[in-house]
Design a protein around this nucleic acid. Structure first.
Lengths: 147, 147
DNA sequence: CGGTATCCGTTCTGATACTG
DNA sequence: CAGTATCAGAACGGATACCG
């Protein structure tokens, strides 16, 4: 239906003028929750959960073992958020002992693809960043020595 | 100088078998700092700063006014991190009053492109997520009424 | 098994005050 | 102008105990 989204082209430089750009929208609470969603998506545990679920459906305890390092609480919280956002589907089997399975929804799958490109960028620039950090830090040491 | 960084290839999916996948690497401190870099990159203020600097070089106070809502402290912290990671270059002009300019480095520019695709995904699925949330919340209300 | 509820220390952030 | 330093409140995350 009506996409209320004002998805202005991100290109700029067409005109030399300084327009407001829709970048400011990221923060402002009014309108879009891009910021909020981005936080969810970029979350440490969310990323891991999505990555694992992208491979196959998993049970709660399986996820817990796979991610390992995550507390029961955080796994629960993370999965609830992802479920709420429609990225993960939770299925409860009324048996005893209880069996609950988590699976990525189609939307969740597309997100995984997008995330992957960001991860790829990170991996691709890992050394460049590490190098930049080393240089920066040594510069700081010099400054400290001077003062 | 010796960068201890071991950059494992991010490719996967060659075989259909369930291998451990390098997803687990995201968390483990050993090896890659993908997680860490991702946190930086996905940071609220970093995103805004990069987006603004992608248009043109800016002074500290200009950035502060553009992002507006950011505290002086957070702008300083954010810019320092980005500078340390080699994403932003800081230039100080020894004049009075002091003049400091911030510009995106080439690497910072490529990051902007990648981030944009994630933002695009978010914008594109905004309503779907909002809808999923609404449904989830109403389901919760029902559950609450039952109990 | 798959949670929920609670406590509690750490981290993150914003506000404020001061400096070269 | 462009910061730094300090402090207090909020948010985050883990450990523990208990429940259906």
């Amino acid at each position: 239906m009506g996409e209320g989204t004002l998805k202005s082209p991100s290109c700029c430089g067409g005109s030399g003028v300084e327009q407001d750009y829709d970048v400011l929208q990221w923060d402002t609470r009014e309108g879009c929750e891009v910021r909020q969603i981005l936080d969810r998506v970029a979350d440490k545990w969310s990323l891991l959960a999505i990555a694992h679920l992208e491979r196959r459906t998993l049970r709660f305890s399986e996820l817990r073992r796979l991610i390992d390092g995550i507390s029961q609480r955080m796994l629960t919280v993370t999965l609830r958020q992802l479920e709420r956002d429609g990225l993960v589907r939770r299925t409860v089997y009324p048996v005893v002992p209880p069996r609950v399975e988590y699976a990525l929804t189609p939307m969740g799958a597309t997100l995984h693809t997008t995330i992957q490109s960001l991860v790829d960028w990170t991996e691709g620039h890992q050394q460049e960043i590490a190098k930049a950090r080393a240089e920066y830090d040594s510069r700081q040491d010099v400054d400290a020595a001077v003062s």
